[in-house]
Design a binder for these strands. Structure first.
Lengths: 222, 222
DNA sequence: CTCAAAATACCTAAAACTCGGTATTGCACT
DNA sequence: AGTGCAATACCGAGTTTTAGGTATTTTGAG
């Protein structure tokens, strides 16, 4: 039997969902809370559900923060966001904070039950329309592939610079003169149109100019 | 009538899918190619499908590159990846390059047709298991929230540094002495355990220490 | 109020960086 | 054989940064 909780300040809506859940023969909802704080308090007492359905717009702590708090406490709980918001930012934040599903309140009770089943089976639940948004967020994450016409050597040196190395340190690992490295750096500055070391590093990371084994990567290493 | 193409070097598999598609009364598949190059050549002739199903492991140009090339030519074409690979990297790359759906070859013909319908309706198609992976990639993108105990002022200055500003420039915009700014920078260095400007900027961006209106952001501005 | 942390400001000296140059060598392409 | 680009190396002057310090004034929490 799957145990679920609902965190939702609109009690008439939560009651609706709750009764739909309790009508199934494999899933129950014993508790509904109006704030994240209430849910967290009860969690501390050792009563742990399999799935939590949560709104985002809540009094006190919002649902996004709530996901983080709940996951920090017991990461095994599957969390499904149930909200009216469908903007990229909310979706992005919710997923980043550990949401396992994202549903709109326009979803039918059947869809909600389906989503619960999906997450307990180790999947993630999101409808096609929202999935498109997730896909779009992803592809917008990919920086445009400016190369600024950097040569192989310049690119190599750029990578060392981003590591925080000085010109002389780079000279050592590349077996060249520090003066040569300075020349390269000067040329990189011109090509990237920056005039400080920090501006260079910033631009290089933000525009994905850094390669790791030939692959572009994001600021966070992926 | 939805027109689809298949790019797949395993012709016995593609023939199977093609006949399944052609058995529907709303979707046809006139062309199947074994390489991206073939598809691109035909695209140039003006014959444009609504949806392309593509493998990833292809002779010559791989499917990931293929997505980019096809989208660059005609971005309206919906592209569904159909592959045996389910590793994070392939999924990530495919979506970043503009894939609109991602299916495993274990999918049934019904699921494939469902996916085609989904993408032409403006959604994105991905099954629950893969969606979980996408969700996990997202949450791994979120840098851990180290703060390194930076004070408000230090954080402010850090942001200017990441912009490539010098100490004196920062002093001007903060209406303080350059010496004060230097002191702050020195303290930031100690807290972040770096000893060059570039190392600082690099670490700050990679670990998401940069705030924009109170919000964390990624290296790419999101 | 009081105490600690934060923010402010200054000093010095060495090291590193920025920017304007010049110049040689080697390699690929025509 | 000649042209162009990449990579190498150097000079000099001025600026900025780094790494030790010290010290005063705010400010926020108890």
């Amino acid at each position: 039997m799957i145990e679920t909780w609902i965190i939702e300040d609109n009690t008439s809506y939560s009651t609706l969902i709750r009764s739909a859940i309790n009508q199934s023969d494999w899933c129950t909802c014993e508790h509904e809370w109006t704030t994240v704080a209430d849910a967290l308090k009860y969690l501390s007492k050792g009563d742990i559900p399999d799935v939590i359905l949560t709104d985002i717009n809540l009094p006190g702590m919002n649902g996004i923060e709530g996901i983080k708090e709940i996951k920090a406490k017991i990461k095994e709980i599957e969390i499904i966001v149930l909200t009216v918001f469908d903007d990229n930012e909310k979706i992005f934040d919710a997923i980043c904070n550990g949401a396992n599903g994202y549903l709109l309140k326009s979803s039918s009770p059947e869809e909600i039950l389906e989503a619960i089943k999906t997450v307990v089976d180790g999947g993630s639940s999101i409808n096609a329309g929202l999935a498109r948004k997730v896909f779009n967020i992803f592809s917008s994450l990919k920086p445009a592939e400016h190369t600024y016409g950097l040569t192989k050597r310049e690119n190599e040196i750029l990578n060392y610079l981003v590591d925080g190395k000085t010109a002389s340190e780079i000279a050592k690992v590349t077996f060249t003169s520090p003066l040569t490295v300075q020349t390269h750096i000067k040329n990189i500055y011109t090509k990237l149109q920056v005039n400080t070391r920090s501006g260079l590093v910033s631009k290089a990371i933000k525009e994905g100019l850094i390669s790791k084994g030939g692959k572009k990567l994001f600021g966070n290493g992926l």
